[in-house]
C-alpha cells in the first residue's frame, strides 16, 4: 500500500525506513524520499554482493531472493548491522531454502568470514589490532588486521591450522588480538545482536 501522508520532510523522518525494503515500498516512487531510502538500501545491497559476489550464484543476478527476506528477518530481530552483518547473512542462509547450496561449497563461508573480518578492520575503533573469526562449519578461521602502516591497508588472512582450535559454541565465534601477532587463544566470544 502506498501512503502519500508518511512524514518525509527531513532525513530523520526516514530513519526507520533506511534499512527496510518493506517500508521503502510504502513511499511514492516519484518522490525524493523514496530515492533517498532506495539509495540507502542499495548501499546495504552493494556492501553484501560487491564483497561476496559468490552469493549471487545462489540468489540469481539481482540478489533480491536473499536480500529482501534477509533484511526483513534482520529487522524482526533488530540486528545491529555492525561488522556482524555478513555473519548474520550466513546465519539466515543456513535456515533458508538455500541451505543445501550454501553448505555444498566452503567458498561461500570463506567469503563471508573474510568480508566480516575486513569490515571489522575498517570500522572498529577500539584498541585491538586484529580479529579472528571462526565457524562451527569449518576448522579454518579468518583473521583481519587493521592498517599498521600508512603504506598498507587492512589485511585479511585465511588460516588453515594444523591443530584446529576447539569449535565455537555457536555458529560463529571471534576473539580480538591486542598486538599484530596471532599469539593467544582466549576462547571464542559469541556474536551479539
Amino acid at each position: 500500500m502506498i501512503l502519500s501522508s508518511l512524514p518525509s520532510r527531513i532525513d530523520r523522518d526516514l530513519y526507520p525506513a533506511l534499512m527496510s525494503p518493506e517500508m521503502c515500498a510504502k513511499y511514492p516512487a516519484d518522490q525524493k524520499a523514496f530515492v533517498r531510502i532506495d539509495t540507502s538500501l542499495r548501499v546495504y545491497w552493494h556492501t553484501l554482493f560487491d564483497i561476496c559476489p559468490e552469493l549471487l550464484e545462489i540468489s540469481g543476478p539481482d540478489g533480491l531472493s536473499i536480500f529482501r527476506p534477509f533484511m526483513a528477518w534482520a529487522e524482526e530481530r533488530k540486528l545491529a548491522f555492525d561488522w556482524f552483518y555478513y555473519l548474520w547473512v550466513y546465519a539466515w542462509l543456513r535456515q533458508s531454502p538455500f541451505k543445501e547450496q550454501l553448505l555444498a561449497d566452503q567458498k561461500y563461508l570463506r567469503s563471508i568470514m573474510g568480508a566480516s573480518a575486513a569490515r571489522w578492520a575498517i570500522l572498529d575503533r577500539g584498541r585491538a589490532r586484529g580479529i579472528a573469526i571462526g565457524c562451527a562449519d569449518t576448522t579454518d578461521f579468518v583473521i583481519g588486521w587493521k592498517c599498521r602502516s600508512v603504506r598498507f591497508g587492512r589485511q585479511v588472512e585465511l588460516i588453515e591450522p594444523e591443530e584446529p582450535l576447539p569449535p565455537p559454541p555457536e555458529v560463529f565465534g571471534y576473539f580480538t588480538l591486542p598486538s599484530f601477532e596471532l599469539d593467544i587463544f582466549p576462547g571464542w566470544q559469541g556474536v551479539t545482536r
Partner: peptide, 21 residues
C-alpha cells in the same frame, strides 16, 4: 552525523534534525 537508528547501523549515514536536535 547519525550512525545508527535504535542501535541499528546506517550504511548511508543520516543527517541530524537541525531544528529539533
Amino acid at each position: 552525523l547519525r550512525f545508527t537508528h535504535e542501535g541499528r547501523a546506517f550504511f548511508h549515514l543520516g543527517e541530524v534534525d537541525y531544528s529539533g536536535e
